[in-house]
């Protein structure tokens, strides 16, 4: 339990570093993402993952879906604002996502396959 708390301290400290970096350099990023990049960089330099950090990050990542839920339900309460455009919105989202998923899978699969054929390039 203390291990999770120590890991949580590290994560929150990196979130703060992210805050500072975003403010100081006027980055177009959220502080969470800036913090994540800084944490990755720090781990790469240290080449060692502490037990604490693993213990705290695993449950938090598992909770991601829960954490975005409060924002997501907002759409049910502001539906009037976009009346008359719902069909457009649904078609754009569903078709657009289907097409982009298809493109990404195809592109990545092809590029990984070329890499496999010529592994020493």
């Amino acid at each position: 339990m203390l291990s999770i708390l120590r890991g949580f301290l590290i994560l929150t400290a990196f979130l703060m570093l992210g805050d500072i970096a975003v403010e100081l350099f006027a980055l177009p990023l959220s502080s969470g993402v800036a913090g994540m990049l800084l944490l990755t960089l720090w781990l790469l330099l240290r080449r060692r993952l502490s037990h604490d950090l693993g213990a705290a990050s695993q449950p938090l990542i598992g909770m991601l879906a829960l954490l975005i839920m409060p924002g997501v339900v907002g759409i049910f309460f502001q539906a009037d604002e976009f009346s008359g455009q719902w069909l457009t919105i649904f078609i754009a989202l569903i078709l657009g996502t289907l097409l982009s998923s298809l493109t990404t899978l195809w592109l990545m699969q092809r590029l990984v396959a070329t890499l496999r054929e010529r592994p020493h390039e």
């Binding site: 949580f8 994560l11 929150t12 990196f14 979130l15 992210g18 959220s30 502080s31 969470g32 993402v33 913090g35 994540m36 990049l37 800084l38 944490l39 990755t40 781990l43 790469l44 993952l49 950090l53 693993g54 705290a56 990050s57 695993q58 938090l60 990542i61 909770m63 991601l64 829960l66 954490l67 975005i68 409060p70 924002g71 907002g74």
Partner: peptide, 26 residues
């Protein structure tokens, strides 16, 4: 009102985003 109340929980989105650096490193 709900959004204001649930802020304590949604704040965790910050450290959870930072935590994604761990699988990235692994």
């Amino acid at each position: 009102e709900y959004r204001r109340g649930v802020g304590w929980l949604t704040w965790l989105l910050g450290p959870a985003t930072v935590a994604l650096g761990v699988p990235l490193y692994q």
